[in-house]
């Protein structure tokens, strides 16, 4: 959208393998500040693992990730040392992560969920943290629910709470791992709306999703992944209307056939 904005995330030659084979092969791409990028692709294509590598929940096998001023590099076969782990830790501070299953802390209220990390990680006082948490809880539209326990919230409310919890750490980038997949269809909209609002405010966001309509409408870029590779990396409308690669075409055709409401 803003072609003149400077790159915020630069990923080069990222590789990741598990016991059962190589999941990510030689991934490289760049995201500019304020962009909203959607990652789509068939199940098992490595898109979730990719997202988890960006905040170091999975440590890549080799490659380099730069987020703002922090660069994590790993040569093939390099054993992680204290310095690398420290870099991962600093990188996480720039990144907020939202999970498919919310992963709220069940033993704490919504307010305490949001307050915890600012207090523990940033050393904020209880009052400061409460003020900050209240601000973000209001922002995601959960003002009346601050003292509720996660078990009493709906899926949509839980996911918005999880977004507030991540935002309270003041991240430069927000990552979403299939944020609406666990939700009932009528609750999907409220979560997507929060992401749209954040985009309008200039937050940089990467979303792994199956919501094709949202991906197409809201994204600056769509990344199509298959078999551990980035197949295409395009503006939303261009990718949907003029896919260059056969694999992209096959995926989209299949998807449109099974989800007629996405057809344009």
């Amino acid at each position: 959208m803003n072609a003149e904005n400077k790159p915020l995330i630069i990923i080069k030659d990222l590789h990741k393998s598990f016991e059962d084979g190589e999941i990510l092969k030689n991934i490289s791409f760049t995201i500019r500040e304020g962009d909203l990028a959607s990652i789509i692709g068939p199940s098992g294509c490595g898109k979730s693992t990719f997202l988890r590598c960006i905040n170091g929940i999975e440590l890549m096998d080799s490659g380099s990730i730069t987020i703002a001023d922090v660069t994590l590099e790993r040569a093939p076969g390099q054993v992680p040392d204290e310095k690398m782990l420290d870099t991962v830790h600093r990188m996480r501070a720039e990144v907020g992560m939202v999970f498919q299953s919310y992963n709220l802390f069940p033993h704490k209220t919504l307010l305490e969920n949001v307050m915890l990390a600012p207090m523990v990680v940033k050393g904020k006082s209880r009052d400061e943290a409460r003020e900050l948490a209240t601000k973000f809880i209001d922002k995601v539209g959960l003002s009346g629910f601050a003292n509720r326990y996660p078990s009493t919230l709906s899926g949509g409310q839980s996911q918005r709470a999880a977004i507030a919890r991540a935002l309270a750490m003041n991240p430069r980038v927000m990552l979403y791992d299939e944020p609406t997949s666990a939700l009932d269809p009528e609750l999907v909209g409220e979560v997507l709306q929060v992401m749209k609002d954040l985009d309008a405010e200039g937050m940089t966001q990467i979303i792994v999703t199956h919501e094709m309509k949202f991906a197409r409408d809201a994204s600056d870029y769509i990344i199509f992944m298959d078999k551990g590779e980035i197949v295409e990396y395009e503006d939303g409308d261009i990718l949907f209307e003029h896919p260059k690669n056969d694999r992209t075409k096959a995926f989209l055709r299949h998807f449109v056939n099974t989800n007629p409401e996405v057809a344009c």
Binding site: I57, M97, S101, V121, R165
Partner: peptide, 21 residues
């Protein structure tokens, strides 16, 4: 396991995640 991931993703160290979550 997801509780660990959530805590670490929020920037906690392993010990903080252990203690608080």
């Amino acid at each position: 396991r997801t509780q660990w991931e959530a805590a670490l993703a929020l920037g906690m160290t392993r010990w903080q995640a252990m203690r608080e979550v």
